[in-house]
Design a protein around this nucleic acid. Structure first.
Lengths: 346, 346
DNA sequence: ATGAAAGCGCTAACAT
DNA sequence: ATGTTAGCGCTTTCAT
C-alpha cells in the first residue's frame, strides 16, 4: 500500500537504465548528456513523480536558495511583515520558510540562536530575524534583524522611526488641547518600546508640561497588561483625557476598556496607537495611529538579505523607515479644554 | 572575520580530542561514554556554540520531529489556523515550519505537490495542507488536509460544517423578514465555497422563495471581485435588502461598498459573513457571521497528523467541526418589511 | 569506553 | 557521453 520510502535519484537511475550521475546532470541541466538520454530520463522522472530531496541537496551544495524568516509569534505585526517578505521573494528565485517560536520566547533568551545554528549553512542561505533578542552573534550565514532588542550594532537592521512617530502622536494630542496625556508603554526589552516612550517624554517636555509618572503604565504590547493599566488610569480621581498606547493592540484594548467604563471615544477620551495594523482601520471609531510601513519593512529586509547572500555589500546597514501620523476618529479636543482654557493661551 | 563555515561535529571532536562518534553519543545521550568524557565534550560544545545540523540529521535519521504546514497565502484565515497549529505543537516535541506559496497557487495547480515531494521523508515527518488542490496523491509521508478542493477521498481531512453554517446564515436573514437575499459566492474550486452556496440555496428553497440567479454573484473570497459584485448588486433597480457573503473578507468589503453608496448597515442593508476572523468583531457595525472554529481546526489537524506520524490509526479520518451563527450589529429587519408585510404573516 | 567505517541522497571532479 | 567515486554532517553498527 504505502511505498516503503520516497523515490530517490537511484530509483530514477535504475528505472532509466543510467547512472545516478547522469540523472543528476539532467536535473541540473548540465552539459554532457545526449539529447535522447536527456529526454528519456526526463520521462522517467515525471513518471515517477520524482523531486530531488531538498535536504540532500542542501547538504551537498552550499547554496540552497531558501531563506528563513524567524518570528517570535504570529501576531498582526509579524503577520503583516511576513506578507511583505512573501511579496518581495517573488521572482527572486528564492523560497521562503517561516519559523515561529510560538510565543515561547520568554522562556529562552536567545531563542533564535538555536534555530539559526541548526539551519544556517545548510538548509537556508540566510535569515530575517524579527525582534531578535541577540544580534551580535556570528550565526555562520548572513542575517538581517527587524526591530531588534538592542540598538547599535554592526548587524544589518531595519526599523521604523519610533522616536519621531511617538513624538508626532504626542504632539497631535497636545495640539488638540490635551494636557493630561497618559502613556501605555511597550515591552521594555525592545528598542522600539524604549524609543516610543522617549518620544512621548520629549514631546511633553518640549511643550513645557511636567511629566506625571503615574500616567506612565505598562502595556507590554499586549492585551492583558494593557487592560489592567487602562482600567487603572481611567479609574483615577483625575484621569487622563488622552492616552498614547505604544502599539495598536494596546490602543484597541484601551478603547474597549473605555467603553466598558461608559466613556466615549473620542468625546471623553482620545486614544492614539502605533503600528497601523489592519485592525486599526476597522475598530470603531477608527484608531488614530502612527503608521509603520510594516510590509515595506518585510520587503526591504528580504531585499537586504538577498544582497548579503549574493555577497554584495549593503548601501546602508541600518535602515530606518519613516513613520507618519494617521488621524482617524479616536482623537478629538478634550471636552474640558474649554473649561481650563489651557489651549487658548498657547 | 567570517569563520569559513559553520561549526561541525568534527570541529567539536577535534577540539575535545575525541572521535566524532563519541560526540554524537553525547549529543544524543547514548550510553557508553565515561562521565568525565561526557562532561568535557559538553563543555566544548557549549564553548563552540555548536548545534547539530538539522539537515544532516534529517538525512541520516528518518525521523526529524519537524512537521510542515503549507498554506497558499497568508490571509486572516490561514493565519488564524497557523496560530491554532502553533498552540497544538507546544509540548509535543515537534517543531513547526511554515511554507507559504505566496498566493501563486493560481499559476500551478498542485503547487503543494512540489513542496511536499522535496521535503517529505527527509526534512519533515508529515504535513498539514491548507486548501490543497490535489489530495489523492501519495506524498510518501503522512499528511492532513484542511478545507480541500475536492470532497470525498480517503485522505484525512478537517473542515467545518459549511453547509449547515450557510443554512443558518440564510435562515437568520429570512427570520428577520428579508426576502430579497443576495449571495456573494466564494472560490468555486474549493469545496467549502460550493457547500456554502448550496446551504444558501437550500434555505431559500425551504422557505419557498424562488431563487433569483441575478442575486448570486462571485466574490472569490477576495476583496476585489467582492467589491465589483457588491457594487453591481446594490446598484440594481430592485436591490437586495440583505447579502450573505461567502466569507468575512467579502462581507467587510460589502459593508464598505454600502457605506460608499450612502447605504446604512443594517438599516438599509443587512450583511452576514462567514469565518469569524478577528476583523469581523472589529468592523463597524460588528459583523454578523458564521463562526468557524479556525484555530481549533489548526489544532486538530496537528493532533491528527502527529497520530499518523506515530503510526496510530485515526478514530475518524474526516472531521467536520461545528459552525454557529454569531449575531452582531450588521443584520436587522428590513425597513421595507413593514410595507410588504411579509414577515407579519408567517 | 572509544573509534573506524559505512551510508542517508545528492553533486562534481575525475575517469573512461 | 556516461560512469565511478568522494564527500557534505551526521548516526550507528561493529571492532577494538
Amino acid at each position: 500500500m504505502q511505498p516503503r520510502s520516497r523515490t530517490t535519484i537511484r530509483d530514477v537511475a535504475r528505472q532509466a537504465g543510467v547512472s545516478v550521475a547522469t540523472v543528476s546532470k539532467v536535473l541540473n541541466n548540465r552539459y554532457g548528456v545526449a539529447a535522447a538520454t536527456y529526454a528519456h530520463v526526463q520521462k522517467v522522472i515525471s513518471e515517477l513523480g520524482y523531486e530531488a530531496s531538498l535536504v540532500a541537496q542542501s547538504l551537498r551544495n552550499h547554496q540552497t536558495n531558501v531563506i528563513g524568516i524567524l518570528v517570535a509569534d504570529l501576531e498582526p505585526f509579524s503577520t503583516e511583515l511576513l506578507k511583505g517578505a512573501a511579496d518581495a521573494i517573488r521572482g527572486t528565485g528564492f523560497e521562503l520558510v517561516i519559523y515561529s517560536a510560538g510565543g515561547r520566547t520568554g522562556e529562552h533568551e536567545g531563542w533564535e540562536r538555536r534555530y539559526l545554528s541548526r539551519l544556517s549553512g545548510t538548509l537556508i542561505d540566510g535569515a530575517v530575524l524579527v525582534t531578535p533578542t541577540i544580534v551580535d552573534v556570528d550565526y555562520g550565514s548572513p542575517f538581517v534583524a527587524v526591530d531588534p532588542h538592542t540598538g547599535t550594532s554592526t548587524t544589518p537592521t531595519i526599523d521604523a522611526d519610533n522616536l519621531r512617530g511617538a513624538h508626532l502622536a504626542t504632539e497631535h494630542l497636545l495640539e488638540l488641547g490635551h494636557t493630561r496625556i497618559a502613556m501605555l508603554t511597550g515591552r521594555h526589552d525592545l528598542q522600539s518600546s524604549r524609543l516610543r516612550e522617549q518620544g512621548y517624554r520629549q514631546a511633553l517636555r518640549k511643550a513645557q508640561l511636567s511629566i506625571d509618572e503615574e500616567l506612565i503604565l505598562p502595556g507590554e504590547y499586549n492585551s492583558g497588561p494593557s487592560r489592567d493599566s487602562a482600567r487603572r488610569m481611567l479609574s483615577m480621581s483625575d484621569p487622563p483625557t488622552a492616552i498614547f498606547a505604544a502599539n495598536d493592540i494596546s490602543a484597541i484594548t484601551t478603547m474597549a476598556v473605555a467603553d466598558e467604563l461608559g466613556l466615549g471615544v473620542p468625546d471623553d477620551l482620545s486614544v492614539v496607537g502605533f503600528d497601523n495594523i489592519p485592525e486599526a482601520a476597522l475598530s470603531s471609531p477608527g484608531l488614530t495611529t502612527v503608521e509603520q510601513p510594516i510590509r515595506e519593512m518585510g520587503k526591504r529586509s528580504v531585499e537586504m538579505l538577498i544582497e548579503l547572500i549574493r555577497g554584495r555589500s549593503l548601501q546602508e546597514t541600518h535602515l530606518t523607515l519613516d513613520t507618519r501620523l494617521l488621524v482617524r476618529g479616536s482623537t478629538s479636543a478634550p471636552k474640558s479644554s474649554i473649561s481650563n482654557g489651557a489651549r487658548r493661551d498657547s
